[in-house]
Design a protein around this nucleic acid. Sequence first.
RNA 1: AGGCGCGUAGCUCAGCUUGGUUAGAGCGCCACCUUGACAUGGUGGAGGUCGUUGGUUCGAGUCCAAUCGUGCCUACCA
Length: 910
Amino acid sequence: MNKQYKPREIEQKIYESWEKNKCFSPKDSASKFSIVLPPPNVTGTLHMGHAFQHTIIDVLVRYHRMLGKSVLWQPGTDHAGIATQLVVENRLSSSGVDPKSLSREKFIEEVWNWKELSGNTIISQTKRIGSSADWSRNRFTMDDGLSEIVKNIFIDLYDKKLIYRGNRLVNWDIKLQTAVSDLEVINEEKDGFLYHLIYSIKDSDESIVVATTRPETFFGDTAICVNPSDERYKKLIGRKIVLPMMNREIPIISDEIVDMEFGTGCLKITPAHDFNDYKIGKKHNLDFINILNKDGTLNEKVDKKYVGKNIHDVREELITDLEHLGVLREKVPYKNVVPVGERTGEIIEPLLTNQWFMNMTDLAKEGVDVVKEKKVNFVPKHWEKIYFNWLENIEDWCISRQIVWGHRIPAWFDENGNVYVGTCEDNIRTKYKISDSVKISQDNDVLDTWFSSALWPFSTLDWKKDDAIFNKYFPTNLLVTGFDIIFFWVARMIMMSLKFTGNIPFNKIYIHGLVRDSEGKKMSKSIGNVIDPLDVIEGISLDQLLEKRTTGLLSDNQKSNVIKKTKRDFPSGIKEYGADALRFNFCAMASTGRDINFDLKRIEGYRNFCNKLWNASRFIILACNDYDYKENQISKDSSIFDKWILYKLDSVVADFKKYTTNYRFDLMANSIYDFVWNEYCDWYLEISKNQMNDTTKNNLIFSIVRIIKVCHPIIPFITEDIWKEFYDKGFVTEPMLINSNFPSQIRISKEYDIESRVLKIKEIIKKVRKTRAELGIHPKEIIDVKIFVKDASLLKDISENTSLVNAMSNIKIEMVSQEERNVEFIDLIDDDYTLYLKIRRMIDTQAELRKIEKRIDELRRIIEKIDMKLNNKDFIERAPSDIINQNISNKTKIENDILSLRSLKNTLSD
RNA sequence: AGGCGCGUAGCUCAGCUUGGUUAGAGCGCCACCUUGACAUGGUGGAGGUCGUUGGUUCGAGUCCAAUCGUGCCUACCA
């Protein structure tokens, strides 16, 4: 074995051997554990969020696999309609091809080509972090099988009248020229103005003033609305105003929705271009005047001068015109919220269009019920509120998109606009008895990507195709995902599974936090603060990192800042830490759903941990080189230390189980870290050096094998590599760790005082070390120590282990049978024993005395506090007796400490 | 505006559900140590009035109320 742990040399080879040996396919077993991967975008690359999520999943998957279950981790990717289409369009454009010049078929072919080219990137990256998904079952939402299910489900929902076609106001992205989901619209606060416009009232000299942030929509106004109880305007209700420039008459109506306090208390209504106005328009039966073309230009319904101009460009021009006409009364600065398309950054326009909708009322109710009935549970629980809130306010889902990459809607129109839904043209003609003479053509729209994602938990598990697979693995045990995706995925998966399989898709939903940069900012290409998980695994030079971070920035003037920060935070780039360290870090940071601030120093710590584990294994291999290990069991004549370490290891095993059930991966990681480093390496391995007999050798091997197993789900690569060494040495018989069994508790000892006995010995060693360090006595100088032991069991333990105590604190110990008072010695006093240290040489006496005084004062204050409790009648009467006893024994202990300190003080003062 | 989090050591975070050790960890810092698994290491240490104020209680980092700071989500009054 190498002296140093080098992840680069082992990780890829190990992953290949797992794949070659088909380790990720489910084993045959009665009990199962299954999980579907929320499909990542096929055009994307792996980011920290994926890496975090995959780590959590993989820990659970590997653990359950080691428990001997049939484990299926179902992977795959999502076709991401709009995002993918944009990528391909941009590629075509930059190679000089106008995407719009291609036919639908040709364009789709281009997308498939691109998918073949880039679609595997994220998969190979996922493998690089060790994900043990069953790649032989990899699925893609546009695959034939999945597409078939999508189509059939659409038809079924249509036949059940849950999907319908309607002319409604939708969020329209004028750049993409498609409807987008309101989840894909970001509301941004922007500086704007509140424009006060004067409309004159027909057949009178009077006028009315409306306030608006979007004056350009006035071309489409079809009413003015005031509050019915507004004294200022009451008399005007029912009158008409004349729309300036247009000379169109529109009524003044009234509705309680109008806030009298805001603006002028007078609202212009543009039903075809505003969601609230739409509702008012419906309620009051107003005209709906659409003033917009699909590309965002104004149509012939507006003043001639403005026809063909982009609605986002005309505001200034229009305001000038209105000012000339005397229509503009004032312009008040105002912060308003503007809806912006997530993908394009374009202002989203509400637009009246024909779209396909899914009625969500009943589906949502069932989705709420299963969570209320605890059939589906969120971890952490508070996310269910978010879930309820969304489902309880849900509107019908607009499922059609005006793009070409995606599942084409299985609907056909005849020349009169009648709609027919079926699997194909032939099916339609039979189903609806349409003769061949009638021309029909398929709808050009495709389905929202999330429609197919909603089916993912059952469509990927061979629903209606392979009952054996489906019945075995569905419902899945768990969904691991980010909170930002609760609506996109979680809610819709639940609703669609209930509808079509009659069952929930998973019974637990673990919601993890966001991975942020070290300052807590969201990682984003446009801010230039992204850290790629692959770069943490394999390392990256500063130059390459700078190049990565300065491409894709929002603006050029950010560049120098990004360069400065990157140089400050990563002066020599990023070192190679390996996938295991990254995974351990994610586990350690995964507390109760909190966001993670990504800290490289922390990763380094876990890389060091890997090195520690590596070297502990190496030590045991070297130490046991001559030992013929064949019995996988505990020797009868184990020392208390042998028993103690197995006892501690047992509780780590128990912890692991507990922390998988309550999803506390941070505590799991800490439990392992603390045990391996602070107990096993710092104490047991050091102790073993002083008692390197066959029993200990046996116990070293027995324990390290168990440790490697327990560590494997978190850090699979290094443990599998160490396992190979163990296999070669005959420590284990199973060739691959991934296929081995997770340790169960062995409940090693019936001697329940083992831990406290070992603790005593550790305490003696630590006391000596501490005194030595405080007095500045060189580590190499052997101190003469006498010990008087009152407790019989301790007396036995010490006499049997004097050489060990000597070696670990570099002293020469002598057992004495009575108290010794001697000025040459300082006393370290405890309940059960007193230590006398012969200190010949002292350094900086004054500083030492000051420290001792300070410490004595501290301890006195603590005693005062305890006394206050003990002297309090209420405390004695009301507090439970074990608490009182605890306080009493603490007091004794602290008093002993003070005595020891006084002895030290006296010795020093002499 | 409403909802949900967060505020504990220089930094990143546990601990709060179920109140009771001298409030913990990693990193960083200081001193010493190139001892045969590991300097990606060892030994020891310094560092915290648990955001603030009140309340409940024998006892509050933990429960309650208020308040300040901060982050996110939802909805928006045009």
